[in-house]
């Protein structure tokens, strides 16, 4: 028994080391003086300075942030309504179709999602002249669609766990369904909506493949710029960028975890 648990512990330790070593190395070598990313040449923050002088990266980061903000908000809206309809409404005709469509994007390869949406946009342009040009708008629609699938997973599990009696109480006291939803259901599932939004936001910020398909010549997102840089080999300013992103994500997760802990205690 002792031997077994030691074996488990060693495997798990190696597993975690495997997950974290590359990330830690990115951070360490972002402070490397030398241009050779993996050879240590002394401490320096010059790659950060370089990063903030690169207009292409700054512009792309701004475009990505805008897209992620709007698409995450849309994704949570669509995901919430879809989850509510699937969990709370009695059987309706399109139920299994909706259930299939909201889960399918989770397992669809990105290249297929990207290609299919691009071909849709091109076909629609031919038929009704919309969406005119491809760029920020088409990326937002694409990201909102697969973001909604992830958001729905988070929100559905919260709706299933939720105590139905509070909604019933509100209904018995004469509240209309819309009122019950906004005054009772929404506040209760709010933490799940926050997690869902953050998940959709991160996925949007991270997506290279779908954005590359549906984007036009005008709009380059941050992953698209990074990919074209990285294809040419490692470059230290990408390490600096990675460190900033890792720092922001860790900060976000710590803040959310603390917030959720506190709201759990208040309940």
């Amino acid at each position: 028994m002792q031997g077994k648990s030691r074996f488990l512990k060693i495997t798990a330790f190696l597993g975690f080391a495997f997950l974290y070593a590359p990330i830690i190395s990115l951070v360490i070598f972002s402070f490397n003086e030398s241009k050779l990313v993996t050879v240590w040449g002394g401490f320096s923050t010059k790659w950060y300075a370089e990063l903030f002088r690169d207009p292409q990266i700054l512009e792309a980061a701004w475009v990505s942030a805008k897209i992620a903000f709007v698409s995450a908000t849309l994704a949570v809206t669509v995901g919430t309504v879809a989850s509510f309809v699937l969990i709370r409404f009695s059987k309706f005709r399109a139920k299994s179709l909706l259930s299939m469509m909201i889960t399918a994007p989770l397992v669809m390869p990105e290249v297929i999602i990207g290609l299919s949406l691009l071909l849709l946009f091109v076909a629609m342009e031919g038929l009704i002249g919309w969406p005119g040009s491809r760029g920020v708008l088409t990326i937002i629609i694409a990201h909102a669609t697969f973001g909604a699938a992830y958001a729905a997973v988070v929100i559905q599990s919260r709706l299933v766990d939720m105590d139905l009696s509070i909604e019933e109480a509100a209904q018995d006291l004469g509240a209309k369904p819309v009122r019950v939803f906004f005054d009772v259901t929404l506040p209760v599932i709010a933490p799940a909506l926050v997690s869902a939004w953050l998940l959709a936001f991160t996925l949007s910020l991270d997506d290279l493949v779908v954005a590359s398909f549906v984007s036009g010549p005008g709009a380059s997102t941050l992953p698209m710029v990074i990919f074209s840089k990285v294809r040419l080999g490692v470059s230290p300013d990408v390490n600096a960028l990675a460190t900033i992103i890792i720092g922001l994500v860790s900060l976000g997760i710590i803040v959310t975890a603390l917030h959720m802990n506190r709201s759990k205690r208040n309940l």
Binding site: L19, Y20, A21, P22, I23, S25, L26, F29, V37, T38, T202, L205, D206, L208, P223, I226, F227, V230, G233, V234, V238, L241, A242, I245, I246, V249, S250, I253
Partner: peptide, 17 residues
């Protein structure tokens, strides 16, 4: 946690390794 940091950058980290 690693899932929340950029997928592209995590793959990139392996080039350096």
């Amino acid at each position: 946690l690693p899932f929340w940091t950029s997928f592209l950058l995590r793959v990139y980290a392996w080039i350096g390794f």
